[in-house]
Design a protein around this nucleic acid. Structure first.
Lengths: 124, 124
DNA sequence: CTCTTACATGTGTCTTTTACATATACATGC
DNA sequence: GCATGTATATGTAAAAGACACATGTAAGAG
């Protein structure tokens, strides 16, 4: 079975993940606000933010190009170092503004989840 | 444009929502743990938990049948009261166990998001 | 009696998001 | 020459969700 899964197989059942949708997007914007980086570099640093909810390599590059099309990041080829050429991404002012909106939305999400958990604990 | 959206249109841009994926599932299980209810009733009470992130009517009924197929809720027709017949749902022991897993996963999600926000505030 | 509104349960269908598999290419060590 | 690590991508299918629509009961207004 394929596709995004809130639950994953485990003895006939699924494991619950509770990921925030499109979380890779603010995660990339945050990493790029800290410093410009290329895709492979971001791929290795993403787990610091996403934890168990890993981001898939193929989707990461597509996401980066999508962000660039929307003017949220900019990029240029960097073949200064040896090895395969890297595309170096940097956040744009529009990207920084979107990151701010993401932060607000994540705070609201935190409040929603906190309310849920409080209500869950109420009659546990 | 259609489909789930982290951002919604607003003067050429999108609004960020930061919803937890499949959040309607634990929300339904929690409401049903508090007391059995029928779909329309749940639809009206869901916003207490989901807030801005509303659950769509059509998807709700599909979700309820999905939960029943997995043995997480049970249901029976209730035509005791006047008006159209209602299908009355109740949570099963398996449903309560899954709700517990959701609560754990949501706590882990809270920690991830908290770490993200802390890192975001660091160099704001 | 007909029309509208509220209650109640659903189906059809498309887009977006994500998972998983695969392709390509450079560089280094063996 | 071949494996490994670095680096960037594409193809495709499934899952999740959005939106439109269909069906039927009952109560109240006119």
């Amino acid at each position: 079975m394929r596709g995004p899964r809130a639950r994953r197989h485990h003895r006939g059942r699924w494991r619950v993940f509770a990921r925030v949708e499109r979380f890779a997007e603010p995660a990339l914007l945050l990493l790029l606000r800290e410093r410009p980086a290329h895709g492979y570099d971001l791929l290795e640093r993403l787990p610091e933010l996403t934890g168990e909810a890993r981001v898939e390599m193929g989707n990461l590059y597509r996401l980066l190009r999508g962000l660039e099309e929307e003017g949220l990041v900019s990029s240029e080829w960097d073949d200064s170092s040896p090895g395969p050429a890297k595309r170096r991404y940097a956040i744009t002012p529009a990207g920084e503004r979107l990151l701010d909106h993401w932060a607000e939305a994540l705070r609201r999400s935190q409040e929603r989840t906190a309310r849920f958990l409080a209500r869950y604990e109420e009659r546990r």
